[in-house]
């Protein structure tokens, strides 16, 4: 199964739409399964990052009997030092983002913790690409 969603940056009112859809789809497919919360939280954190730090983004989800694969691709400022960005506590989030309840610098590490495989690449001035893979078994 293949799904795609657009994310609008700066728009906190629509934040979580893709994750919510993914949760509904996975509940229908898998019932109660431990993997659901992990991938849903990982996607939600990624959505928050696009809305908070980038300009626009696209979510591509592929589900088969073996695994769930999620790609989040954004147009944005990119990340200069990925290793630093991955550190818990490092954040450049704006005051507005903090008022929304985010910006603790925990997101990327949390995405990694909730994935079986996690890949991140970024080009400054272009955008950031995340790939999250979780196995069903």
């Amino acid at each position: 199964m293949h799904f795609e969603f657009e994310i609008e940056a700066g728009d906190f009112s629509k934040l979580g739409f893709a994750s919510s859809q993914l949760k509904t789809i996975l509940k229908q497919l898998l019932g109660d399964h431990k993997v659901i919360r992990r991938v849903v939280v990982a996607l939600y954190e990624s959505e928050v990052n696009v809305v908070a730090h980038a300009y626009s983004g696209k979510v591509i989800i592929d589900i088969n009997t073996e695994k769930i694969e999620i790609e989040i691709d954004d147009k944005g400022p990119g990340i200069e030092d990925i290793q630093l960005a991955m550190e818990e506590g490092y954040s450049t989030a704006s005051e507005k983002v903090r008022e929304m309840g985010f910006g603790a610098g925990m997101g990327l590490a949390n995405i990694k913790n909730n994935s079986d495989e996690f890949y991140i690449s970024s080009e400054v001035g272009v955008g950031t690409n995340l790939k999250i893979i979780a196995y069903l078994k």
Binding site: F12, S13, L15, G16, R37, V41, Y44, E45, M100, G101, F102, G103, A104, G105, M106, G107, N110, N113
Partner: peptide
């Protein structure tokens, strides 16, 4: 909410002063 998202526990009650959609 960054902290709440790191929890991995069932049947949890959340107490917060953050009243928004997030």
């Amino acid at each position: 909410m960054s902290d709440v998202l790191t929890l991995n526990s069932d049947d949890v009650l959340l107490i917060t002063g953050l009243a928004n959609l997030q």
